[in-house]
Design a protein around this nucleic acid. Structure first.
Length: 330
DNA sequence: TACTGTTTAAGGTATG
DNA sequence: CATACCTTAAACAGTA
């Protein structure tokens, strides 16, 4: 087994699973979601091992994307033509990796989906149905596209609001040794940033948070990344790779993220969206508010360009109500 | 047609 | 040793 950090195994197999590699790629992207081809590209650029036998590992990677609930599929918008969907990390898979390291997962991420009480008795889906999610048009919040029905989304929202469909074994773990059951939420957790009142709605809708916030006009890309990076340094390490020359070595990912990023004895989430199902939440008032300029609502395909300093004090209520209306009126 | 996505199956490895 | 996780292969369907 090659030792991470050594430069002598440049074309040997990295110690990361396909799930890890995919998560890296997705996390590294500004929008926290990537099309399949870009995931390939990311891996091949950084891990020379994967520049060969592409058929083999790309098939495996696709298998992982479909099979694992930690990956969610986001349909392209009409203004984003291209082949295939975007792939993102499920908001709840934050502590998927052991000790925040990409080297090994702590537990398989599995979403339990409640059977939506659809009239007419719809046959059950496959054993691990894909995470096909809906997107909606900010200009036409009543319209949702994607597979399935909007009724199902609403039903799922109701189910999730009732606490259904969450894995009991997916206990949160705190940053300061807080007990797993304490329900500690980092102040910069997205759900805390956007508020808990419709977090469940977002999750239940199947909409990935990055996508939801993006569509709502939240400056997901750089701002959240910046905020998150200040709290989870390893995310910053990953983001910093964007400007790093791609060597023929493993680069930052050749080093165990655990050793690289985490103080000894401290565990951190592996992804910047450490949202876990809990009942006890800190008061929203204790959360630094993420402000949004109303003029920036629904920036369609805005890339990661704005910064926190560019924001004017406001509330995300417009986007909030937009999402709400989607789920209510659809 | 190539790419993307889903699903099944089997075998290997790590962990408790 | 049982279980979970991971990898690989392959068949098949849908789509740009």
């Amino acid at each position: 087994m090659p030792r991470p950090g050594k430069s002598s195994y440049s074309d040997q197999k990295p110690p990361y699973s396909y799930i890890s590699l995919t998560a890296m790629a997705i996390q590294h992207s500004a929008e926290k979601m990537l099309p399949l081809s870009d995931i390939y590209k990311f891996i091949m650029e950084r891990f020379p091992y994967y520049r060969e036998h592409t058929q083999r590992w790309q098939n495996s990677l696709r298998h992982n994307l479909s099979f694992n609930d930690c990956f969610i599929k986001i349909p392209r918008r009409p203004d984003q033509p291209g082949k295939g969907s975007f792939w993102a990390l499920h908001p709840d898979c934050g502590d998927m990796f052991e000790n925040g390291s990409f080297l090994r997962r702590r537990k398989r991420f599995k979403v339990l989906r409640p059977e939506p009480p659809l009239p007419g008795g719809v046959p059950k889906g496959p054993a691990h149905p894909p995470h096909v999610v809906h997107y909606f048009h900010p200009q036409h919040p009543g319209k949702m596209q994607g597979l399935g029905t909007s009724e199902a989304a609403v039903a799922a929202a109701a189910a999730a609001a009732a606490g259904v469909g969450r894995l009991p074994q997916f206990q949160p773990y705190g940053l300061n040794g807080s007990s797993p059951s304490s329900g500690f939420k980092h102040p910069f957790a997205i759900e805390n940033i956007i508020g808990r009142d419709y977090k469940g709605v977002i999750q239940a809708s199947g909409l990935p948070l990055a996508s939801v916030m993006h569509h709502l006009g939240y400056p997901v890309s750089s701002q959240l990344s910046n905020m998150v990076s200040s709290v989870w340094p390893h995310v910053g390490v990953m983001d910093s790779m964007a400007s790093m020359p791609v060597s023929h070595e493993y680069g930052p990912f050749g080093v165990p993220m655990k050793a690289l990023c985490h103080p000894p004895g401290q565990t951190m989430p592996a992804v910047p969206v450490p949202i876990k199902p809990t009942l006890a939440l800190p008061p929203v008032s204790a959360i630094p508010a993420l402000t949004v300029n109303p003029s920036q609502i629904c920036p369609s395909t805005s890339p990661a360009s704005s910064s926190l300093l560019e924001q004017t004090p406001s509330t995300p209520s417009e986007g909030k109500s937009a999402l709400h209306s989607v789920l209510v009126h659809s």
